[in-house]
Design a binder for these strands. Sequence first.
DNA 1: CAGCATCCACCGGGATACTG
DNA 2: CAGTATCCCGGTGGATGCTG
Lengths: 144, 144
Amino acid sequence: MATTDAALRITADEPLVDHPHLGSSTCSTDNPASAVIRDVLSRVGDKWSLLVIGVLHDEPLRFTALQRKVDGISHRMLTQTLRNLERDGLVSRTSYPEIPPRVEYAATPLGRSLSEPVLGLVGWAAANHEEIMASREGYDGAPA
Amino acid sequence: MATTDAALRITADEPLVDHPHLGSSTCSTDNPASAVIRDVLSRVGDKWSLLVIGVLHDEPLRFTALQRKVDGISHRMLTQTLRNLERDGLVSRTSYPEIPPRVEYAATPLGRSLSEPVLGLVGWAAANHEEIMASREGYDGAPA
DNA sequence: CAGCATCCACCGGGATACTG
DNA sequence: CAGTATCCCGGTGGATGCTG
């Protein structure tokens, strides 16, 4: 945790990329780190983006196939999610001018690179899920 | 990325903790990995949790100090966020029965352990923020 | 100072219908 | 089949006022 601790400390005038942190100083709106956190979370933290990227990680898929894989996602949200991911360069869109139309979506290298840190988070979640659940039940049981 | 690739593949009957993944198989609601992803994201992905944990990573703080540090956060949301974090065992709450009341919040070991994977994500965000922004502008410029 | 309750604006996201 | 547009509901979160 030493490295983590070091990384968490930062004098706010340092360039962000060198010392990413969560805000040992004031986490104000003017703090660029907060902005980046917000940004990545709003991109990745929505209901579907991660699932879509996950599904696309291994193989390109067309729209309908994608919708079947990520089940529960609505037609509209799949479109919207794909637009956002494409806009950010995490997913590529290839349209074949045929009839009927065929469009293939694939994760870009950037999109696939996202998997690594995300897996870290997922790993954490998986590893500590039980402990969290336990704490949650304890809390709900004895709020006194 | 070889390890990542391996970790992303999973036959859905394997225990989750051993092979966390984003869903190379169907990302349905019955897929436990999806549930965990959703869970961790809804915990950590909200507007303030990460900022609060980040601020608490180094030192315990009382309510008002916390509110000053995480600036922009409303009174209500700070309370709410702290309650959730406390419930999940990520933050501890110590109340001193004095007048005026004093309450100190501190990150638990579990809470601090979250920093590690999160920093991975923040690092990714920081490292690729520019590329994303560029892609975004390119997309907005030439949607044709 | 810490915390709860109320009111309200906003937006994410589901269902659906229509176009190329 | 792929994509857009419209409608609508529910949750999130901000502002504010009241209590211990």
